[in-house]
Design a protein around this nucleic acid. Structure first.
Length: 306
DNA sequence: CCAATATCTCTAATTACGTCA
DNA sequence: TTTGACGTAATTAGAGATATT
């Protein structure tokens, strides 16, 4: 599965740096600001300035409450907090199960509630939050920088947006899923077009083969002049279906695909582990997709093939 | 040191809500 | 006004990693 990225993505964000003015101060022990923190700060600054013009008073109230509830550091160095509820549960020695705590978080008891939730029914019904354009823009910008969040980033972002950390987490999960789905669609389209192209190529080669056979049949006299020489025999490579002349003199076919000892450049290993002959490598996906070991690393690009 | 347990985060699949044509 | 499609927030289940007991 995916390795945990907490250490590599650690912002060094200090929640204490969240000032009441809404500015996000990010600092590392070295004093350098990470790219993610810088992006968050600038994006949040731009978008939130507009947002705050409308909802500053209410947001401040929320953020103050959130800051009071959410301090992941108080739980110790190693265990990160996902929700204020779980933090509270742990710090109070609560032995309730994970599901219980998740239920608690969902129902919002003791946690931070968003504007939308405040207006929701309290009967436990699933009330769907609609993220504002500004919230979505901030999340989107952050996603561009990093598709995953460490706990500190999550809490900081949640605080800034007036959302629960869980909501930020869910948004990133769904965003990754959408990205992957889109990439899959792109890949699917790409493969479809390759398939069509190969079918065309196959047709062309079969026609070429038929022509050659016709040519051979039409000129039997020249073949008869050299009856002992089967050099004109045409064979087709079972793998790539290319036509090749066979050298029967030594009962050795002209090898279309030199066996495994061939130079590394002669064969590329596909993702499935099969060997693709070098002259069959007009399907680049067989090669370059091996480098895409993870979806996160696969950029959503339309390959320029045609 | 090792096993059991707890907790976290992730993906994948699914559900359900809100919007819009 | 109703309805179906669609986008997406939220839920669920299960797996892997890591810390704690």
């Amino acid at each position: 599965m995916m390795p945990h990225q907490s250490s590599s993505l650690d912002l060094g964000l200090s929640l204490g740096g969240l000032t009441s003015q809404g500015s996000l101060s990010s600092s590392t022990t070295s004093g350098a600001i990470s790219p993610w923190a810088a992006a968050l700060t600038s994006v949040v600054g731009d978008v939130m300035a507009r947002r705050d013009a409308h909802a500053h008073a209410h947001a401040q109230h929320q953020h103050a409450a959130a800051a009071a509830m959410m301090d992941p550091d108080h739980r110790g160095a190693m265990r990160a907090s996902t929700s204020p509820d779980s933090a509270a549960a742990l710090s109070s020695g609560d032995s309730s199960s994970k599901r219980d705590r998740e239920l608690l978080e969902r129902t919002g008891s003791g946690g931070v509630r968003s504007d939308e939730e405040d207006g929701a029914d309290g009967a436990g019904g699933r009330k769907k939050l609609r993220l504002s354009k500004d919230q979505a823009a901030v999340l989107e910008e952050c996603f561009k920088t990093h598709s995953t969040l460490n706990p500190k980033q999550k809490v900081a972002l949640a605080n800034r947006l007036g959302l629960r950390p869980r909501q930020v987490e869910v948004w990133f999960q769904n965003r990754r899923a959408r990205t992957k789905l889109k990439q899959t669609e792109v890949d699917c389209e790409y493969l479809k077009r390759w398939c069509e192209r190969l079918a065309d190529e196959n047709k062309r080669l079969e026609k070429e083969l038929a022509d050659l056979r016709a040519l051979k049949a039409a000129a039997p006299s020249s073949a008869a002049a050299q009856p002992a020489s089967p050099a004109a025999t045409l064979t087709m490579c079972p793998s790539c279906r290319r036509v090749a002349a066979a050298n029967h003199q030594h009962q050795k076919q002209q090898q279309c695909h030199p066996k495994s000892n061939a130079s590394p450049a002669a064969a590329a290993v596909t993702a499935a582990g099969s060997v693709v002959p070098s002259h069959c490598q007009f399907f680049p996906a067989a090669v370059d997709r091996t480098a895409q070991s993870s979806w996160n690393a696969a950029p959503l690009v339309t390959r320029e093939l045609f």
